[in-house]
């Protein structure tokens, strides 16, 4: 019985998140559209509201092209690895008090593990397509993930030290329900490092080198089409959602808000997530793209020393206060 309930919960979560992904693309296209003096999707439904559904149907029925020279098993597996690992990390996210599928004690670590796994999908896609652009995209992705995973992890160590836990629910509770309790005020440097690393981790502008359109055509997913391409796309948007959620949980006080909303407690969580996603999109509309070596320089020479310094400083303050 318990398992059945859990399965229903999983189905609801996946359904809601997929719908969210669909509408996140709409959200992005509309916002970017208005920032770029155009309208965005307008034709399907009222102000293009049904556009994501139409896109989904289109990509589902498109021909699935597999290159002749591709490494077939890996080529087929790569998008699935990407999508599944991103989806699995959804399980540990606490949307509100008690609204987590699996409230495990190593929640943060689990998410890191899963997001690293997702980069396997990208690297395998780059390798298996047997195309030069995809390989370059895969290599770039590998280097990028390795460098930024470190700073992403290190930036959250400060949060772990303050809350004393890896459990996401406990991290939220440790911040308390007051506005000033949010770790963004006690850990501003960590938030900065986290934010930059988050952009890089999710392959967003200005760090979208693995799929830099004007350099590598479409990077690792050049050879993909139809549903498999859509899987990468979904994985990317779920990744954005997951990373934004971690940001909210670790720095912005999770589901706590100025007042409690009855019947639907995750409302503040979702609003905060969308705030971060809006900033993602805003950045995409504004900034050019970094070069490969500049990206590495920022990762290794700026973010990692900053994160390490932050850990040292946090530890020092903690000792002094105690």
């Amino acid at each position: 019985m318990q398992i059945l309930i859990l399965l229903v919960q999983i189905a609801i979560l996946v359904g809601v998140v997929l719908l969210h992904v669909a509408y996140a693309t709409y959200f992005e296209r509309k916002i970017i559209g208005h920032m770029q003096v155009r309208m965005g999707p307008m034709l399907v439904g009222w102000h293009g509201l049904l556009q994501p559904i139409a896109d989904g149907i289109k990509s589902f029925f498109k021909e699935d092209i597999i290159p002749e020279q591709a490494d077939k098993p890996l080529f087929l597996a790569a998008p699935i690895i990407c999508l599944v690992s991103m989806m699995v990390s959804l399980a540990v996210l606490p949307f509100a008090k008690g609204w987590a599928l699996a409230d495990i004690n190593i929640g943060l670590l689990f998410i890191f593990a899963m997001s690293s796994l997702a980069s396997y999908g990208i690297i395998l896609a780059g390798w298996a397509s047997n195309s030069k652009y995809t390989l370059l995209g895969g290599m770039r992705s590998m280097a990028q993930v390795i460098s930024y995973e470190i700073s992403l992890g290190l930036s959250l160590v400060g949060v772990m030290m303050l809350s004393g836990s890896l459990n996401l629910t406990q991290i939220v509770e440790a911040q308390g329900s007051s506005f000033t309790g949010m770790y963004i005020f006690t850990q501003p440097v960590a938030f900065f490092v986290f934010f930059v690393a988050m952009l890089a981790e999710t392959n967003r502008v200005p760090f979208d080198l693995p799929e830099a359109e004007t350099e590598l055509v479409s990077g690792y997913c050049t050879e993909y089409s139809g549903m498999r391409y859509a899987m990468f796309f979904m994985a990317e948007y779920i990744g954005m959602f997951v990373m934004a959620s971690i940001g909210v949980v670790c720095f912005l006080g999770g589901w706590n808000g100025p007042f409690n909303v009855p019947f639907f407690p995750p409302i503040w969580f979702i609003l905060k997530v969308y705030l971060i996603m809006f900033v993602f999109i805003w950045i995409r509309a504004t900034l050019p793209r970094y070069r490969y070596d500049q990206l590495m320089t920022i990762g290794w020479k700026l973010l990692i020393p900053l994160a390490l310094g932050n850990i040292f400083f946090t530890g020092l303050v903690k000792i002094v206060i105690n």
Partner: peptide, 15 residues
């Protein structure tokens, strides 16, 4: 600008 990744300039210029 689009080649370098600044997407918005592209549409401003086309206007």
């Amino acid at each position: 600008a689009l080649d370098i990744g600044a997407m918005t300039v592209f549409l401003y210029c086309f206007r």
